[in-house]
C-alpha cells in the first residue's frame, strides 16, 4: 500500500495536521475561530552539537523545509 502523501515526503504527523487544518477551516465561523487557535504552534528549536547549542529556529519553518527536502529525494 503506497500513500500519495508518503511519496511526497510528508510524515504521518504532518499528514494528520494538514488534514486537521482542512477540517478546522471548513467549520462555521464561530467554531472555526476557537478551533483554529488550537492549531497554532509557535515553538522554536535548536540542534545541539557536542554540548553546544546551535541557533534557535522556528519549528514550523524547519519542518516544512525538511518535508520539502524529503519530497525531492
Amino acid at each position: 500500500m503506497a500513500f500519495a502523501w508518503k511519496a511526497s515526503g510528508l510524515t504521518y504527523n504532518k499528514y494528520l495536521s494538514v488534514a486537521a487544518r482542512v477540517v478546522r477551516r471548513s467549520l462555521k465561523d464561530d467554531k472555526r475561530l476557537a478551533a483554529e487557535r488550537r492549531g497554532e504552534m509557535e515553538l522554536r528549536f535548536a540542534k545541539w552539537n557536542n554540548g553546544k547549542q546551535g541557533d534557535m529556529k522556528s519549528l514550523a519553518d524547519a519542518n516544512a523545509a525538511s518535508m520539502a527536502e524529503a519530497a525531492g529525494t
Binding site: 510524515t11 504532518k14 486537521a20 497554532e40 515553538l43 519549528l59 514550523a60
Partner: peptide
C-alpha cells in the same frame, strides 16, 4: 499541534 511538530522533528 505542538506535540505533532515535536514528534516530527
Amino acid at each position: 499541534t505542538d506535540a505533532q511538530a515535536i514528534a516530527d522533528q
